[in-house]
């Protein structure tokens, strides 16, 4: 709907009525309020984190200072989100291709809804599902992985006996971000100009060659932007990780052992209800780091997606 993107409205110079002024003021105010809230999130987190930032190192949980307290958590956050993205992004692109270019046209919308439903399921349910269903199911495969691929640090083992590993957390995260990525990519693929698809077919391309020639390049920046969105979501996901992951702290790339680094969000959820005093301030400081990281990732993602939107406009 490029025509509706920028409504051309005549700018009429009318005398401002009181009703107009109030209404315009209200709606502008609401918009400004949103910006204020976003600034407020940063400000209030900073205020409540401040005592932990200036506190002496031995008073921070762990006794080694704030940086060393947050670093393993940040590592776990980045590790889980990165691998989740690694799994989810190719799947999401493939699913978007299926819905836009393979599925019968009449079914394609319904199939899209089904994928969207994956995004609607509350994260606590993914957590319970991961704990009770997925984790036990990985016991066999992880044993196999250690045995045959144990030379790769990721699968070093020894495999966890409960299955509550980083690998399961990564898989649950991947399922959760899949629909977000797929929805954005799907929209981009759907907008591929028919002319470009026909141009590819007319020089004798098979369907896959047509997709590679016309559709995938057209959707490339959407794929990148959507992946960043998914990454942002995976970084901040809380309950599923909190439930699934069995935590022992420490920094390791080993995905299938029982000693896993926690993530910032999961750590807050697990520790917050029982914490008091400076512990709370330290948790909020870690939350501030998470906020900064996700904000950066999301801003980057939106910039990439928006640039594509200008690119592919009506020209």
């Amino acid at each position: 709907m490029p025509a509706t993107e920028q409504p051309v409205r005549p700018r009429t110079k009318v005398r401002q009525r009181p009703g107009d002024r109030i209404f315009a003021g209200l709606s502008t105010g609401a918009g400004v309020l949103i910006l204020t809230v976003l600034g407020g999130v940063a400000a209030f987190l900073l205020i409540e984190a401040w005592p932990a930032i200036i506190a002496p190192a031995d008073e921070i949980p762990g006794g080694e200072g704030l940086v060393l307290y947050i670093w393993p958590l940040l590592f776990g956050t980045l590790l889980s989100a990165f691998f989740a993205l690694l799994i989810a992004a190719p799947l999401a692109v493939s699913i978007a291709l299926f819905i836009t270019h393979y599925a019968p046209r009449r079914l394609s919308q319904a199939l899209g809804y089904m994928i969207d439903l994956l995004a609607a399921i509350p994260s606590i349910i993914y957590g319970l599902w991961g704990f009770f269903v997925l984790a036990p199911a990985t016991l066999g495969p992880t044993t196999w992985l250690t045995e045959y691929l144990g030379f790769i640090p990721l699968f070093e083992g020894p495999p966890s006996a409960t299955g509550r590993t980083m690998l399961v957390a990564v898989m649950v995260l991947a399922v959760m971000i899949l629909p977000i990525i797929s929805a954005v990519v799907r929209e981009a693929f759907r907008q591929t100009p028919r002319l470009h698809e026909e141009a590819a077919l007319a020089i004798g391309a098979t369907r896959w060659e047509m997709l590679r020639m016309a559709v995938l390049p057209f959707g490339r920046s959407a794929i990148i932007g959507a992946s960043m969105l998914g990454l942002g979501r995976a970084l901040g996901e809380t309950m599923a990780v909190a439930i699934v992951l069995s935590v022992s702290g420490g920094v390791t790339f080993n995905l299938i052992s029982s000693g896993n680094p926690s993530t910032i969000a999961a750590n807050i959820a697990l520790k917050f209800p029982e914490s008091t005093g400076l512990d709370i301030n330290a948790l909020i400081a870690s939350g501030l780091v998470l906020f900064a990281v996700t904000l950066g990732v999301n801003m980057l993602a939106r910039t990439i997606i928006n640039r594509r939107r200008e690119f592919s406009g009506a020209n």
Partner: peptide, 27 residues
């Protein structure tokens, strides 16, 4: 069939992500 019977469309439709050279070389 399409490989042997080429087609030119109503509106010019070079692949926007490809260079002039790559457009010609695509097929």
């Amino acid at each position: 069939v399409r490989r042997q019977i080429g087609m030119v469309f109503q509106r010019p439709n070079p692949f926007p992500t490809m260079s002039i050279y790559d457009n010609v070389a695509a097929g």
